[in-house]
Structure formats: C-alpha cells, structure tokens
Design a binder for these strands. Structure first.
Lengths: 358, 358
DNA sequence: GGCGGGAATGTAATCGTATACTTCTGGCGC
DNA sequence: GCGCCAGAAGTATACGATTACATTCCCGCC
C-alpha cells in the first residue's frame, strides 16, 4: 500500500480534476481531448473552459502506458558535431512536429555498441519509431528492432537489396560520378581524402565507388593516394600537406566531405598551391558554405533535407498503417563550381607513362 | 472493461514475465533493476539471466507514471539550421547520457508562441527539466514553468539580476569588448552586421553593447552602419555589398556571428576589398571554420561546449536536490587573428573631422 | 530457549489515462 | 403506444512499473 500524503493544493492537475470541475466523467474529458466529435458541443465547451481554468496538461506517461503510443520518434545519429547531420535533424524534427510528434535525439560517435545501447534506451523510452543512419548495424540491433516491431528506417543510404528499409542515395554511384568527372577532365593522378570508413558504410561505399570507377578507366588507386581522417577542417589541411610531399602529388583530390575539402582549400592557400590550376578539388555534401568558398567548391549535393522529411513521412505512414515505400532513392547532383578544371600540363603526364629508358 | 486479446507469443515482455521466469515476485525484479544491493546475489543472477533470456526491456511510460521520473530532459532551441547551437546540443546530450538521461529536442524558429507551445509539449511528454536559450520568453512560459516546478535554465545569457537561472555570458560585454578593440586600433567608421534582434535578446544585447561602447568613446552608430539579417553566409555578403556602396564605407565591421563574417570575407574577395588592409572584420562564436578562413577570422570565442555541460549539470543537480548555482558566468575571449589591423590611412581620417572650409 | 532485529522477499495499492462495455435518453416508425 | 436504435455519457478495468508495508527467516544474545 502506498499512503503518501501530498499537499492537495500543489498536486498536479489530472483528468479527474477537470472532470469534476466540468461536472462530467473522466471518460468524457478524455474523449473531448482525443475524439471531440463524440462529445456534445456544450459539454466540450465546458470541458475546454475547465482545462484552461485549471491549467491542465495531460500526462504523457499515463497516456503512453494506456494507449501504447508515446508520440515520440527517436533518431540515432553518429554525431552532431560536424554539422553534417544538422540539416537532416532539422527537417526531421520539423516534419514530426507537424504531426504532433517529438524527437528524441541520441548520438553514438560511430561506435556500433553505443548505437545498440542507445537504440535500446530509445525503446525503453517508448519511441514509436526509429530513424537510423547507414545500413550496417550491429546484429543485435536488428534483433532488437524485429522484436519490438517498431517501424525504423536507414537514412543516407539506398540499397534495394538490403533487408532494411532505407531512404537516401547510392553512395557508390554518387562518389563514382565525381571520380569519372575528374577523369573526363583529364586527371590521372587522383587522390582521395576520406572520412573514417570503419563502422561507416557511407564513407566506405564512397571510397569503393571511386576505386571501381577509376579501375574501369584503367587507373588504380595506390594507398599513398588515399588518406583517411575524421571530418575536421584541420584534417583536410593535414591530408593535403601529406599529399604534396609525395614525389608526384595528385592533380586532383576527391574529399569525403565538404569539411575536409574546406581544409584542403585552406591549406592550398597557405602553401601557395593554386586551385584549380594546380589542383582540382571536389567535396561531398554541398553544405551551406561550399558555394561561398573561394574558389567556390565543386561538390556532390546530397538531399539532406528531403531525407529528413521522407524519413519522417515513412515512419508516420507506417504508424498509421498506411502503405509506404521501403526503398526511396533520392537524387544526388554533381555541382560543378570553381575548384575543378583540366590538369594544367596534360603533356607532362606522358613522361610517367613512357620512360626514356624504354 | 478491456478484453482485448493479444497473441500471447508476441506480447511484450513485462516485469511479470521476468518474475515468473526467475521464480520470484515483480517487486524483487524491480529492486534488482533499481537498487541491486537490496537483492541477494544469487537471486540477482537468476533475474539477470531471465532478463537476457526473455529480452526484457523496461517500459519507460509505466516507470515514469509510477515514479514520476521520465529520465528525459528537454531542450528548446531556436534552430539547428545555422549550426550555431550544434556544439551546445552535442555537449548537452553527451553529459545527460552519462547519467542515463535522454534529450528531447525541439525548435521554435525565434517564434515566442511556438516556443511556449513546444515547452508545453515537452511538459506533456514528462520531461524532468528544460534547457532554454536566452532570457526573454513569453510570459506564459514562466507561468508554465512555475506551475510545473520543473528545473529549467536559460543558456547563452548571463544576467544575475534576472529572476531566472542562467548559464552563459554577458552578451553586452562580449560585444563591447570587440567594439573597443576596434576603436583602440584606431577605427572610427565601424559598421555592425547583426543577426535578427527581434525576439532575440542575445543579438539585441550585443548590438546594445557595441553601441554603448562606441558612445563611451564619443562615437555614435548611425543607422546606415547597422544591417540586420538572418545568419546566412549570403546575407553577410549582401550586407557588405550594401556597406561598400555608402559614400564613406566603414573601415571595420563587427558581425553578430561567424557565419555573417564568413559572408563578409567571401564578398570582400569578390569585390577586391583587401582584408584586413582596407577592412577589418570581427566575427562572433569562434566556430570551427573561423581559424581556417583566409585571413583567419578575428572573433569572439564563446563557451558553447561548457554551456551544454553546465546546463546539464545544473538540471541534474536540481533533480537530485543538490545545491546548484543559479547564475553561472562563463568566459568569453576575444580571439585576435588575421582579419583585424589599424585602418590603412589613419591620416585620411582627419579630412572628415577638419573640413578645409573651416 | 525465547525473543529482538535486520535482511530478503512478497503483497498489493497506486500513478493518470484510454477505452470496452453499459446505461440512459429521446426520437422515430409502425 | 411500443419497441428499437443511435448518440451521448458513465462505469470501471487495464496498461506495467514502483514502493509502502507485511511477512518470513535466520541469527545472536540474554
């Protein structure tokens, strides 16, 4: 038995209080809130007045417990730090808010174990659906999701062969397109500065896409031309510095993110490397700042806002038992700006291919 | 009466199931979860095994309803779009996660009514505490918070005269310091590009701080020298363009954010305005990119990460009934880099003050 | 040997709401 | 005038956990 005594004056206002005040039953008040059309107009008016007068705020926990609906959707993203996911989150939150849903946000720092834990925590909190990033997760995560039968969706990826619903784009193709573009311009010494590929299928796919696109053209990608670093501006700078200490520096560099590309441009200015004359640079994301860099950054534009909206739509449709596409492929665009052009001295490239001694 | 029939096989696993499986009462299982030291080691082991075997996940709604603790803290911020608040959110989420709390995130787009609604929604969801941005909110918001007796804290501001707890810095002083610095360098034609000041006491305070600092030095700030625009790079560019169409363009410009300053630098490069020779530029925030701009941006460094951590600490301490400072003032630094120097032609400034005709 | 007391566990009330089922009312058709 | 039905409101249970209080058991001490 629980005989706690609470000061009645400071007690939370409940449905019961509203019902008493409006002189009706709790069921009627509940109906007035959740399906007003079932309640007579005058009674409804009385109830509304009582709610205002008492300052009643429904108790979400009780509501969630009884109805099994929390009106909360969870998102598990790698990090907010790099602002890469800011646009996704922003549009997700907006779209959910339109339908009265709130967003519970969680990060895992590219650690699959933490991702699993955080997802479990979200389920504990009673989220009705979950938005994830990427297609490769801990095995336990899939079991968990299957067990709870909550709708979920992977974003930032598109893979119709996957067992899991996804909304995004094909990272391989997107990166491959950028690689082919550089090759078409005439570049043959192409370097890659990628974000961490460990536990990150998006970055890994982009790298793979570049590699295979170049191989199709008969070019291979030596390990000296691939540098992997977290998405920080200073890492882009450092990577460029390393590349320009090579006996044969690249004539073009593909970056795994605009942030890394920013660092590259910054360091080029520092070292006196002229872009795009001496070096072509391509970014990835098309963040706000990309078009305002000097020269303006050629980059791959991704549908961050659409992904957020579509992910919310997908979850909401599933929750309302409406049909929803499990696989949504969104457009990616190669946005050509000022940091790319054909390599300065196409003729000098021959030297490498045909040594004098041959 | 509620006679819903659910397939028992697919029913959610509850405490009851665990108790049955471990052959003990629900009370014991609950204790094993919440205060393990009260449960005998062997029983605890049995329970742990049962939890694993059944894949039990606690129901947060039930827990919250009974214990009045949701383990959720809410944050109401203006927007995530400009990435200005990303660092705050990141560190807030991290710190909360350390104590097993989750973050419910909400935005209001500088609309006080939406801010109020969103806060009410958070309270409905049962958040235990609330983190806000700024010190000026709708009156109804304060009533709401008072009524619910939930700990809350204003961030990004420091005002010991306020009735509300806050963690941040003095925006007036911070901006005034930057203004004095420019004056000390010898600048007399100083312009301001501010973010929206409507419903935004931080920006308004910064502008006021600049104005009064200049007035102290006998300089006034004509309205032609103040441009107000949302925090977008293109707006910084546009503002600079406008300023340089004036008959007497400024020799220095103070920006309400690094984002605006970014735009200014970008446009200067476009127009051939040399920074810092022709124009000194000061930003605000010290975002990641500031030090990597060319020239590196002189700016006001704010304690975004600390604010997140301290806000979380404050709420957590309040929830645990531990003493907590209601007013925390964090350090702000003027970070001098490459975009500021004395005005090019100090001598020419005299012309203005002493016309030939006098 | 009886009894006090503490540790471990069990029993059952309770949190605030949604909702299945019941009851009541009045209108309508025959 | 009677029965039927629809619409509106009421009654009371269940959601799944926490926790106050009751119970049991075992030990040690007088």
């Amino acid at each position: 038995m629980d005989h706690r005594v609470t000061d009645p004056a400071s007690r939370r206002v409940t449905l019961r209080d509203v019902a008493d005040h409006a002189n009706c039953s709790t069921a009627t008040v509940s109906r007035a809130l959740n399906s007003p059309e079932q309640v007579a107009v005058e009674v409804r008016a009385r109830i509304d007045a009582s709610i205002k007068a008492l300052g009643y705020v429904p108790n979400g926990a009780a509501r969630a417990l009884r109805s099994q609906r929390s009106q909360i959707v969870g998102a598990v993203i790698p990090t907010i730090k790099y602002s890469i996911y800011a646009r996704l989150i922003e549009s997700l939150e907006r779209r959910l808010a339109m339908d009265g849903y709130s967003l519970l946000l969680t990060t895992h720092d590219y650690d699959p174990v933490k991702e699993l834990e955080q997802t479990q925590l979200l389920l504990t909190r009673g989220v009705e659906g979950i938005v994830l990033v990427g297609d490769s997760h801990d095995g336990g995560l899939h079991q968990l999701l299957a067990k709870h039968r909550r709708p979920y969706v992977n974003t930032y990826v598109f893979n119709p062969a996957s067992k899991h619903p996804c909304i995004g784009f094909d990272n391989r193709l997107a990166a491959a397109r950028a690689a082919r573009y550089l090759h078409d311009l005439g570049h043959r010494r192409i370097a890659v500065i990628t974000g961490p590929t460990k536990n990150n299928d998006r970055q890994a796919d982009r790298l793979a896409g570049i590699r295979s696109a170049l191989e199709e053209r008969g070019l291979d990608l030596p390990s000296s031309m691939v540098i992997e670093r977290p998405h920080l501006i200073e890492n882009g700078r450092e990577a460029l510095e390393i590349l320009f200490q090579l006996p044969e520096p690249p004539t073009a560099v593909l970056c795994g993110s605009d942030v890394l590309a920013f660092g590259v441009l910054s360091e080029c200015q520092e070292l006196g490397v002229s872009v795009p004359n001496q070096l072509s640079v391509v970014g990835f994301d098309d963040q706000d700042f990309a078009k305002h860099l000097r020269p303006a950054l050629t980059t791959v534009g991704i549908p961050a806002v659409e992904m957020g909206i579509e992910a919310a739509n997908y979850i909401l449709r599933k929750l309302n038992r409406q049909p929803a596409n499990n696989f949504t492929n969104l457009d990616v665009q190669l946005i050509v700006r000022g940091t790319t052009m054909p390599p300065a001295a196409l003729s000098t490239q021959g030297k490498r291919a045909v040594p004098v001694s041959a």
